[in-house]
Design a protein around this nucleic acid. Sequence first.
DNA 1: TTGCAATTAGGACGCGCGTCCTATAATCTG
DNA 2: CAGATTATAGGACGCGCGTCCTAATTGCAA
Lengths: 194, 194
Amino acid sequence: MAASATREKIVTAADRLFYERGFEYTSFADVAAVVGISRGNFYYHFRTKDEILVAVIERRIKDRHAMLEGWVAQGKSPRECLASFISILTVNAAKIRAYGCPVGTLFSELSKLNHPQEAGARALFDLFRHWLRQRFEDMGHGAEADALAMQLLARSQGAASLANAYPDDAFLAREVDQMMAWLDTVADPATIPS
Amino acid sequence: MAASATREKIVTAADRLFYERGFEYTSFADVAAVVGISRGNFYYHFRTKDEILVAVIERRIKDRHAMLEGWVAQGKSPRECLASFISILTVNAAKIRAYGCPVGTLFSELSKLNHPQEAGARALFDLFRHWLRQRFEDMGHGAEADALAMQLLARSQGAASLANAYPDDAFLAREVDQMMAWLDTVADPATIPS
DNA sequence: TTGCAATTAGGACGCGCGTCCTATAATCTG
DNA sequence: CAGATTATAGGACGCGCGTCCTAATTGCAA
């Protein structure tokens, strides 16, 4: 098999396992077993565990970037974009209840480990932060756009954390509704005619 | 030295290390080194790592319970109690920026590990949740008291997560201000005369 | 088809972990 | 002071980890 294809399969499996079990608790052998290759072959593609982590973070950044920019490319308004962002909590509700937020839990773990790739995990946060800020700017919130982005980010992180602790159907839905209502209050009618 | 005193020192050290480095990443030897005892002695007091975890969770529950009920015993009003809760983020700002929330990060880690003591960590959340709910009930929010408690809990979790990712002085302060303002809007003037 | 590079397999290594054991030292009891 | 209990020390164990190596197999190019 082509090297790149095997690499992709490894990254896909590691991405899932790092999310479900955490980085430190996922071993080389675990990933290799899921992919169905030997550890020796694994070593041919990734020489250290950190290399896999870097690849997984890159993958996540690429995926999320495509998702976010896809909404913009579809012609969604800033407000619709923000609503789509909030809806992530609804779309991925089952996984979030089971494993938390892929961004937040990864950062939290790497932060505790004082891992060099903490910066990579922060870059994932940055991706969302900057994209959100841009939407708020496009809505006319020049000065406070970044603060609004942080506020929304914090709120989704909190909702994901509590949903993980209390896997209860109603809670996440309620938080989403409240965030949507909050979005109404910050939407500037002057720049959003509809 | 009396057995109970050594035990307490071990729990204190483990509590700190579990917070700063995480449970899985803290070894027996790490804790023993901090306390200044041998691993053999350690084993005399705690036979498994899980036993220490149980003791640490018990300690945290006891501490937090004393803090929360202390505010009530001091004669604080429900609203003042809630404000004190929010102020935890300010009082512990430095640690939160460095290590996140001790409750949330512990739960997140144990959840990923599928650790039996995930339930213990959830009990820590429950302590806050039920205490907060009681304050909201005392403020006259009978039906929606639990939802308000969850909302406030989620918001502090989110603020702690983002403060950890972006150790920036201003952000946490802003979130605290907003939570305090939110507290004003839910405070029922009918039952809170002042 | 032959030969070289790319890919895979699987075992070896050293280390740190949680756990367990036994011998010694300290403390308490009568 | 003698003896029993409590507390401490430190080493031994088996295991799984990340890492590394070498040999076999596959696939492509001349």
